[in-house]
Structures are given as structure tokens and as C-alpha cells.
């Protein structure tokens, strides 16, 4: 069965290996150079996705798999994007209600209603 396995020129692995180091250094640099706000988040995400993409595509050989496998593994993760999006929505709302009722004090406690 060995002939059916994933066999690729070793050069590709060294190239990706090198790129991963570069991207890691890049995201490290984002921190040292002190980028702030959107630029920082954007760069972190870009480097993260690049690294993840290269690991999955080359090291895990997904680039060379047939589309049937690629889609079967990648499409279900869309559910996670839905979860993430909706939970971000929800978290914003929860924070807003907290500020509204407790003034952002995490130790505030809802008191029982006064009984007469």
C-alpha cells in the first residue's frame, strides 16, 4: 500500500517549515513593535491563519487529498463559525445588560426584591 501514500519532494517540507518560522517571528514582532487596535488584531489573525493554513495544507497533506475528503473535513467547521458569530453577538448583549444593571462591577450581586 505504500505506493498509495502521500509522497512528496522533501523540499516542500523545508520550505513550509521555514515559512512557519517566519510567520511566527512575524506575529511575535507584532507584539514587540507594539501595534495597537485593528492593525494588531488584523495582523495576528493573518499570521495565525497563514500558519494554520500551511500546517493543514502541507504538513497534514490536505492539499494533495481529493476534494471529497477536504470538503468533508472543512465544511462542518462552518457550524463553529455560526456558533462563534452568534456568541459574540450574545456576549455584547450580556455585557451591555451588566453595565446597565451593575455598572460593570463584576462583584455586584442581584439583590432579592424588597418585601413589604
Amino acid at each position: 500500500m505504500a505506493s498509495q501514500g502521500q509522497q512528496h519532494p522533501i523540499k516542500v517540507y523545508f520550505l513550509v517549515w521555514f515559512l512557519l518560522f517566519v510567520f511566527s517571528a512575524g506575529s511575535y514582532y507584532v507584539d514587540i513593535a507594539g501595534f495597537e487596535g485593528m492593525a494588531r488584531w488584523f495582523l495576528i489573525l493573518v499570521f495565525m491563519l497563514l500558519k494554520a493554513g500551511f500546517i493543514v495544507a502541507v504538513f497534514m497533506h490536505m492539499k494533495w487529498e481529493r476534494p471529497a475528503l477536504i470538503l468533508a473535513i472543512l465544511l462542518p467547521t462552518l457550524f463553529l463559525l455560526v456558533l462563534m458569530y452568534l456568541m459574540a453577538f450574545e456576549a455584547d448583549y450580556a455585557y451591555a445588560t451588566r453595565v446597565l444593571y451593575f455598572g460593570a462591577d463584576p462583584n455586584a450581586v442581584a439583590l432579592p426584591p424588597v418585601t413589604h
Partner: peptide, 17 residues
């Protein structure tokens, strides 16, 4: 792992501290 990370996001977004 994504459920862990989503929990992290939610908790960090909702905390007032």
C-alpha cells in the same frame, strides 16, 4: 477546542473586570 475558545471569547467579552 473551538468550544473552549468560544467560551473564552464570551467570558472575556462579558466580564466587567
Amino acid at each position: 477546542f473551538t468550544c473552549f475558545l468560544v467560551s473564552y471569547m464570551t467570558i472575556r467579552m462579558t466580564t466587567g473586570a
